[in-house]
Design a protein around this nucleic acid. Structure first.
Lengths: 218, 218
DNA sequence: AAATATTTTTAGTTTTGTCTAAATTTTAAT
DNA sequence: ATTAAAATTTAGACAAAACTAAAAATATTT
């Protein structure tokens, strides 16, 4: 598989979560930063290889084969992210682009040895699950901070958006994976939240709350 | 720079050691496993970018810019080899192909962090020198085992050929970097050598001796 | 020095992945 | 149920990096 094919497969995999009945050509083009016509071409090739099901005008879905291949790419991406943060001291906002390149290195031995070297991590630095060598993914019990009610408490376990500006904002506010968050109040006008993060009170916008995953704590 | 351009540059760098007055088109084609005509095309592109000097029919030489770029690729290749062997327990005959892919990852930060993580190694698993971040290479004092006289002793510090069949042969004979080697006798007919490796006597062919680097010991 | 052999370059194709512009199909709106 | 809008596909073109076959330049041999 070429780098380009792998990128398409990965994008289709991510979009499938939101559009399980078929991923649109334009949606793929948006993610790959290419044009719809290019997507049509590539999608035909992937269908030819039986990695996806494609019906003209109806979008695409992954086959079993394509799903596994996509998971293996995601696995590589996330394991490399762990490596970069844990071993090379990258910050969580710096890892994406490099991992985007590293995910295309073709060696099963490499990735499985790396997995072992890292201690078989189940989540990447952003809290996203890492598929194991068989493609199995440990479901993580999490919900958006914006869905909690006033008075509820949670532990930060992930981010929905990994844009570096967002991650840097979190660093600045000292919000990290593992932080204890309690909702003190909700502003009905803009849905901004007053929260206590590890004992420190602050106000965050709805957009922030809508991109932070927490695990409910008692 | 594309992967292909980087591969050409690296090959020209290695061939320059033997042909400092100009690297031949055919020599490059042989190493890249492509055809002479393809080399001519690429060589024009690299000359356009001022990475090499090219005069029709006269071969190519690296410019300062090209030399540094080539050294950085070699640096990446060899650092990744150290990583694979030291951290992921690859054997020295397994690392080449994977490092060949890893050397193209484009992140100066990555490679310098990796360098630090590995403790700034100066040699790769085959005894080849690793250029530092400035492109400086520590000259290694070594000579071919085949150039030693009977009675001389040396310590194995590198291999000239890194073919995995050769490396596996060395493993089987328990010859490794650091092994003490003493020449006991030379057969004039085929130039085969009787040697003592870490106390163990054995006979090796001239071809083997001609691909093993040793540092003279007293 | 001429003839031959080798090496290198040129010219013209191919493949991969992309694009633009036009045509087609589907979806939404009146 | 038409019509208008949006999404998708087709057709044709292009750039990168490779190739084959032929032409040109350099090297070697007699």
């Amino acid at each position: 598989m070429t780098h380009s094919e792998e990128n398409y497969l990965k994008v289709i995999y991510h979009l499938s979560v939101v559009s399980p009945r078929g991923v649109n050509t334009n949606a793929i083009a948006g993610m790959i930063e290419s044009k719809a016509s290019s997507v049509t071409d590539m999608v035909k090739k992937l269908a030819e290889k039986e990695l996806i099901l494609y019906q003209k005008y109806q979008g695409v879905t992954l086959t079993e084969k394509g799903l596994l291949a996509a998971k293996m790419i995601v696995r590589k991406h996330r394991l490399w992210e762990v490596f970069l943060v844990e071993k090379l001291d990258f910050t969580w906002d710096e890892v994406h682009d490099v991992a985007e390149e590293l995910e295309h290195i073709k060696s099963e031995k490499l990735i499985n040895k790396l997995d072992a070297f890292l201690g078989f991590p189940t989540e990447d630095p952003h809290g996203d699950p890492i598929p194991n060598a068989k493609g199995e993914i440990k479901k993580i019990d999490k919900q958006l901070l914006s869905d909690l009610e006033t008075g509820q408490k949670g532990i930060c376990v992930g981010v929905k958006d990994s844009a570096s500006s967002f991650l840097q904002y979190l660093d600045k506010q000292q919000i990290a994976l593992g932080s204890k968050i309690e909702i003190i109040g909700k502003e009905t006008f803009d849905m901004s939240l007053t929260i206590i993060v590890d004992g420190k009170e602050m106000i965050i916008s709805n957009k922030i709350a809508n991109n932070l995953f927490v695990k409910l704590a008692t």
